Amino acid sequence: MSRDVRDLDESVLARWPLPDPSGGKEERGRVLVVGGSRHTPGAVLLAAEAAVRAGAGKPQVATVGSVAVAASVALPEAFVTALPETDEGEIAPSAAEHVLELATEVDAVLLGPGLLSPERACALLEQVVPHLRCPVVVDALGMAFVTEHPEGLAHLEGRAVLTPNESELAETLGQDASYVHTHLFESCVELVERTGATVVTGGEETVVVAPGSETLWSLEGGVPGLGVAGSGDVKAGVLLGLLGRGLPAVGASAWAVVLHQAAGRAVSETLAPVGFLAREVLTSIPREMARVARGTGP
């Protein structure tokens, strides 16, 4: 398929109007974040709060039992579930049944933020992903499942989004990181064709590629300060929230990429070009979403 590369500016988002924000929390989507470890509890908190900042109504977090209570205190808006964990403080594969029980009641699921071991991440997702029917975002070390099972998302029929960074994309494709960096579009297209999922990745240039589309979307002019730990968790959480509200995979991906950059730029202009924290981006998301929505409305 011949594909055209187009700029993903804010005006393009009119293709995917945001859902009506009226109604209660149930109407705006229930979302589930699965991840974290004893050593990385913050990843799921950043993602879950980002989903709410993007308009989701009811956030849920499933993480290891040793940090679940602290997570519920840190994010009191979320329903937090304690999962069985290994001696190393990671989510045990035996948690899969509990995760699936939670997933039956939500509108979208994010798998991967804060996981530490590719092997255990893959073992967990092998028992979870084949049974999911709602939209799914696979992030960070959750990509280990995609590496081993590139066909494993096909049953979702285009309702899955992959959000690897460039090194994770290279690992999944079995390519050198330098090759992926210089052939970003080709690499994304290859992963889309292997998996049937929408792919979001990049740094200074962020790319969105959707299955069956003749268009590849590119957002340039990255914000240097967003190159910080936790930034990817925020972006994945925004994407999750928008999926939970009902946007299609490519639309949620496009909005998430633009909002993440816009919120980061707003913080950069207020504080400094670099040195701000990923969590400081969170409060700018709803304001930037409202601003962009006004510019893309009828």
Rank of each mutant, 00 (worst) to 15 (best):
L75T: 09
V161I: 10
V109F: 06
E205L: 10
E288W: 14
G275F: 11
A92E: 12
I285P: 12
A96P: 11
V161G: 07
G227N: 13
V31D: 06
V5A: 00
S284W: 10
T198C: 10
E85C: 04
A82M: 06
E269Q: 01
A254V: 02
L32T: 13
P248Q: 01
V34L: 13
D176Q: 15
V146W: 08
T283C: 07
A96I: 05
L156D: 05
T198N: 02
V80Y: 12
S117M: 09
A293G: 08
A229Q: 02
L173A: 06
V52S: 02
G29D: 10
M143Y: 02
G35W: 07
E49W: 07
A62M: 09
V67Q: 05
V128N: 05
L219Y: 05
L239C: 13
M1H: 06
A140M: 01
V64D: 02
S66K: 01
W16S: 05
L102R: 12
R3Y: 00
R294C: 07
F276W: 14
A71Y: 03
E190H: 12
T195R: 13
A229C: 05
S231G: 15
R287Q: 00
V34M: 13
K235W: 01
E88Q: 14
F79T: 15
V258S: 00
G55Q: 08
G241T: 11
R279T: 11
V189N: 03
R30V: 06
T296Q: 03
G232N: 01
G112M: 07
A68E: 03
L240I: 10
T147Y: 05
A62K: 05
S167L: 15
L132E: 00
A96W: 03
A62L: 07
E119D: 14
G212P: 13
A293N: 14
P41T: 13
S94A: 13
F145W: 03
A262D: 00
P135M: 11
R245K: 11
L216F: 02
L100C: 13
P298E: 10
L191N: 08
G251I: 10
R3H: 06
T206S: 12
V189M: 08
L162F: 00
V12D: 06
P19R: 07
V73M: 13
A78T: 14
H181S: 15
L259T: 14
L240H: 08
S94H: 01
P118K: 00
P150S: 09
Y179W: 15
G237K: 12
G158L: 08
L110V: 09
R38G: 12
R245N: 05
R159C: 06
T63Q: 04
L282S: 03
L125G: 11
P21V: 15
P19T: 03
L259R: 14
T81R: 13
S94G: 03
V61A: 04
G222A: 08
P113K: 14
E27I: 04
C122I: 01
L191K: 11
V250T: 01
L110F: 10
V137H: 09
V250C: 00
T86V: 09
L32D: 08
A14V: 03
T172A: 15
R3S: 04
W217N: 00
A236I: 04
D4I: 01
L184T: 11
